[in-house]
């Protein structure tokens, strides 16, 4: 059963001049994690806002747990959790105050709200900080409290909009751990991210979006396969580049790519580790000791580059979500 369905969503801004969503389709199987991956301005946040009832599309359909988002937004709000890019909690209040307030707004009794707050603070390792104002929290703690607030009613479907953007590596690791645990608990999760590594780590399936459309979809592995198979990559001393190139050409049988700056020689191979062993043997016979040698599978960066023609991390900082629209990144 599909827990989330979006069909042909179109959303334009500025009287139609900017198409934030351009016929977006996606769905999430119940109990799985879909990673929506795309650069800034691709339409990730707009998609989440529509699914979470905050925004109406110009056209298209959306449903969450079988409930029509546009016709019955109030019903949808009772079963979803939303945690956004910016920690949406009251910073002057304590973590405890916030959880009680949101619990009460979910219409829990005072007692139930207290019990749930204690549970969540425990679960997110925030018990010690419960009575401190949020503004004294670290970025990672704020994000965890924000996530806790979105879990008060044990939502069937959880939307996380760039949950680790702006966190330091430690905070990101913690957040991943927390999300992993949630997923083990069986929640259906739609997660947006601009970090390929994050989608790779957390998502069962990935939908790559660009310019308001899904341009590719599948598991991390199948997307990588789409781009191409494995490559043999060898780094050697300057003096050995030419000789190595000949060896790699023999093993690979196809075009060899040489990066003079990195002294790296690479070529696609079809025989996997057999090719690697063969190349190592031939290098050894030629008296060449490679600085690095290995089989590389394409990264999601490669996937993104080959699908969109531009690099994912390219932060289109000067172009905001609303105006970026169709601007192409540098090739």
């Amino acid at each position: 059963m599909k827990a989330v369905i979006a069909e042909n969503l179109i959303k334009t801004y500025n009287k139609g001049s900017v198409r934030a969503l351009d016929g977006l389709n996606l769905d999430v199987e119940e109990g799985t994690v879909l990673g929506v991956l795309g650069p800034n301005g691709a339409g990730k946040t707009t998609t989440v806002r529509i699914l979470a009832t905050l925004l109406s599309p110009d056209s298209g359909h959306a449903s969450v747990a079988g409930i029509d988002v546009l016709k019955h937004p109030d019903e949808v709000r009772k079963i979803i959790g939303l945690s956004g890019q910016y920690a949406a909690v009251d910073e002057t209040l304590t973590g405890w105050d916030n959880l009680i307030m949101f619990g009460r707004l979910y219409h829990l009794s005072a007692k139930a709200a207290r019990e749930r707050a204690i549970e969540l603070l425990e679960q997110f390792s925030l018990s010690d900080a419960a009575k401190r104002p949020i503004r004294t929290y670290s970025g990672g703690m704020r994000r965890r409290l924000d996530l806790a607030a979105s879990l008060i009613i044990r939502p069937k479907v959880l939307f996380l909009d760039e949950p680790t953007t702006g966190l330091d590596p430690r905070g990101r690791q913690d957040m991943w751990g927390v999300i992993d645990d949630l997923v083990k608990g069986g929640v259906t999760l739609l997660l947006t991210t601009q970090y390929l590594e994050e989608a790779d780590h957390l998502a069962d399936e990935i939908a790559v979006i660009d310019h308001g459309r899904v341009i590719a979809r599948g598991t991390s592995d199948s997307l990588k396969k789409q781009v191409g198979g494995e490559r043999l990559e060898i780094v050697v001393e300057n003096a050995n580049v030419a000789a190595t190139k000949e060896i790699v050409a023999k093993v690979s049988g196809s075009a060899v790519n040489v990066d003079e700056g990195l002294r790296q020689i690479s070529a696609p191979v079809t025989t996997g580790s057999k090719a690697l062993i063969e190349a190592a043997k031939m290098l050894d016979e030629a008296g060449i000791h490679p600085l690095d040698i290995g089989l590389k599978r394409p990264s999601l960066d490669d996937v993104f580059l080959s699908l969109t023609g531009h690099v994912a991390e390219e932060k289109i900082a000067e172009v905001s979500d609303a105006t970026s629209g169709r601007k192409k990144g540098k090739k």
Binding site: A52, T53, D74, R77, G84, A88, D90, F102
Partner: peptide, 13 residues
């Protein structure tokens, strides 16, 4: 600005 209004609007209130 802090996104609190978004959160309130996502609640069944």
């Amino acid at each position: 600005q802090k996104g609190l209004i978004d959160r309130f609007r996502s609640l069944p209130i």
